[in-house]
Design a protein around this nucleic acid. Structure first.
Lengths: 258, 258
DNA sequence: GAGTGGTCTAGACCACCTA
DNA sequence: AGGTGGTCTAGACCACTCC
């Protein structure tokens, strides 16, 4: 850049990032608009291409723009968020015949579907075993992995663990469990009715693996939810980890103060 | 790099990042250890310094290392997470005389404190007004801003909005509300007992402002929680936005299935 | 003062998309 | 084919930390 206008002593990349950010927030660059190319920005501002590139990275990291290889850099469109609520397990919604995720997609006019990745007998990781209160001599569980899609976007990776003793010999071992109320319908028939939930929520950047599976653009974090189902006896019997794209989804909890 | 060993055709920066990642995960580089400097890494691997730098950025973005200007790059130590639970509003904890955040800090042996940033009469943003069911002719609210600290780290920025009619003329306008049960103690005396909560949770990268206030390292997302308090009449009367460092904090919900 | 990360330059080639 | 972003090089200077 020719000179730090207005006595702005910050790095040129930050100044350019701020200029572009203002253009976006003022609406001068509306959602979906294409920014000038890195080479154009560099020439216009009298800086090296790498410096313009650094400015764009700053914007991409805060989620304002998205770079598309070979096409250009675009202002990220506002997206509607799929908000998974704690009422997702409520018997109230059973008569819709839809699982909670699909119901939420339908509300937002999106086509939801899910895919079964694997159904396997495994030794669960320590944090899962602890929350399921599995004793060391029964350290065996059924693990089911799914991916949930809304339209063309993968939104959540969902991994469920069940104590092996509970799952063995049931339809839970099949890819399609074939019960109108899903796996919780089968678990109810086996005497475990979900009475309380215990959810632990974290946010973090995705692992390289997750970045690929969820088609995450750089700078988008994930919500990591560890859900434990508690039965009428107060005992845990099912655990699910949701890894959710934070740009497309969120959570909602409605609960009494106890 | 001299040649893509083992036919690995990925960029050199990714290969170096993976090599370092393995060293960290195997314990060869334990928490707190200093990595070789960028210049050393470049020379050792026969790559340009910028390429070594890119590898380190990949690791920093996934939270594995932290770069300290003038000192070096260090393996990020495992950190204990302050998990804010929905029982934070429970009357059960009143006899401890501690607010929920301070209680959670105490449990983890940290020194918790909070700081009042501002107490002002404002026109609330649209999303806040809607959740508080403020009508357009009473669009006025008291806003209180706080920062919560654990030891030397700022952990949460907390902003509370109250309908002006509810706050006017009360101790809520003062910096220190001077009630043993905090603002909710005063609100109860004014006839609003928290009966239910409605929390909406998102994760995102911080704004530049938040990055500064929360002293966030690059690649650390925030949890953004919009909490609404519902009284015995089922009406909302208080709204709080928590912006929490995701590397130091999380959430927990224990709730009945209704 | 020596060493570190942070920023920047002015080039180069590659991978990808659009036409 | 031409333009785009992705990666890389081989330098340079600055800001910060530590001795």
């Amino acid at each position: 850049m020719t000179s730090p206008e207005g006595g702005d002593r910050r790095p040129a990349s930050e100044r350019l990032a701020d200029e572009l950010r203002r253009s976006i927030e003022s609406g001068e660059l509306p959602a979906g608009a294409k920014l000038s190319s890195e080479r154009e920005l560099a020439e216009l501002h009298g800086i090296a291409r790498n410096t313009a590139r650094q400015a764009i990275r700053l914007l991409a990291e805060s989620g304002l723009v998205i770079a598309e290889h070979g096409r250009g850099v675009f202002v990220r469109p506002a997206i509607s968020v799929i908000r998974l609520g704690n009422d997702r397990y409520s018997p109230r919604y059973r008569d819709t015949g839809l699982s909670p995720f699909l119901l939420e997609c339908a509300k937002q006019g999106k086509a939801g579907r899910f895919e079964v990745l694997s159904v396997e007998r495994v030794t669960p990781p320590a944090d899962v075993a602890a929350r399921l209160k599995l004793s060391p001599d029964t350290l065996s569980a059924l693990r089911r992995e799914n991916v949930f899609w809304a339209d063309a976007d993968p939104v959540q990776r969902v991994t469920t663990w069940l104590p092996w003793a509970l799952a063995d010999g049931t339809a839970l071992l099949r890819d399609e469990v074939g019960h109108p109320f899903g796996i919780h319908g089968i678990l109810e028939e086996r005497g475990h009715t979900m009475t309380r939930i215990h959810d632990e929520i974290s946010a973090r950047m995705p692992t390289p693996d997750e970045r690929e599976h969820l088609q995450l653009s750089p700078g988008v974090p994930v919500l990591d939810v560890l859900h434990t189902s508690i039965d009428t006896e107060g005992e845990p019997y099912e655990l699910t980890r949701f890894v959710m794209r934070a740009d497309l989804s969120g959570l909602r909890y409605d609960a009494p103060v106890e």
